[in-house]
Amino acid sequence: MIPAIGLLVGLVIGIVLHPDVPLGLQPYLPIAVIAALDAVFGAVRAVLDGIFDDKVFVVSFLSNVVVAALIVYLGDQLGVGSQLSTGVVVVLGVRIFSNVAAIRRHLFHA
């Protein structure tokens, strides 16, 4: 409940403040957001599996974000930034889909 409220508060703050993304962060923010979403869905799945752990969630959230940004940064340095970020998005998308499927099975048994 509290995390959902936190998410809503964040959304509202963003809408109110209309932040400009710093230039240096611009290539990494979309990937970081996708990675964070993956962590969140993984957390919900873990809750439903009964194996949720606060510490694991915080660490996985932060590491997901950092690693995703790092991969994109590395790809940019190697000249394959766009391909690599596409790859990261694909992998995270697949993970999100599988997590959502697990959640759906838990909640609706379908």
């Binding site: 936190g6 809503l8 508060v9 964040g10 509202v12 703050i13 963003g14 957001v33 964070a36 969140v40």
Partner: peptide, 8 residues
């Protein structure tokens, strides 16, 4: 973290 995610 959730706030950060929403903001981002």
């Amino acid at each position: 973290l959730a706030m950060l995610l929403g903001f981002a």
